[in-house]
Design a protein around this nucleic acid. Structure first.
Lengths: 108, 108
DNA sequence: TATATGTTTCAAGTAAACTTGAAATGTATT
DNA sequence: AATACATTTCAAGTTTACTTGAAACATATA
């Protein structure tokens, strides 16, 4: 994860609709959600959904797979781990305050 | 850290100049850096620097303190911890893949 | 082959982010 | 009080992000 990648991830995350999409995909788990269902659930037009899904896809936060007529989107959790690592290590140089403020139990 | 705060943090992070400012402040530590020095070090005009510092300040990523004529900016590491927590817990519901992919040693 | 469905792409418009340079504000010095 | 310095604010312009609706593309079914 270089800086360019990180910027693209942050840009993808800085939009309400796209954050809704991510939450949707997190809840759906490995099964994923089709583009149409995503559009319906976030109250967006097909082309709006497609626009936001492209941003998420380009930034590596989601993966897509065509299954007959539909396209299934799935969360890429590794990418979240990578951006967290970027924040804590690359950006903050492992600062202990940043790390302790995550409030995470052991094993993170 | 609610969603609105998180969106503002992600927007603040999704800009190259602002990421440079953060790295600068991380390196500077508790001493902080004046607005003028920040502008010089990131090759920005005073008003450009001020614009980006306002975004960082509004999102809670930095703090500022006036000292005579200068304004000193300092990193707020807690805010990084908070956004990491938002990503891993609120957004990803504690998904183990996201957490393990941070690649952090114990005690995070 | 024709038609329907699911999705993306495109072009045009609108809104938001960023840049630029000048003016304003606040503080120190003479 | 006048001047200089550090920074912010403002207005105007530019660029980038987002929305909208129509058209195109891909796949399935009759």
């Amino acid at each position: 994860m270089n800086e360019r990648d990180a910027l693209s991830v942050f840009a993808a995350l800085s939009n309400e609709s796209r954050l809704s999409v991510l939450r949707l995909l997190v809840r759906a788990g490995p099964q994923g959600v089709t583009a149409g269902d995503i559009a319906r659930q976030i109250n967006a037009s097909p082309s709006q959904a497609s626009f936001h899904l492209a941003a998420l896809s380009d930034s590596g936060l989601v993966l897509s797979e065509r299954v007959s007529r539909q396209i299934i989107y799935r969360m890429r959790f590794e990418r979240i781990g990578e951006i967290v690592r970027f924040l804590l290590e690359d950006c903050c140089e492992g600062d202990p305050v940043a790390r302790s403020c995550c409030g995470l139990k052991s094993g993170c």
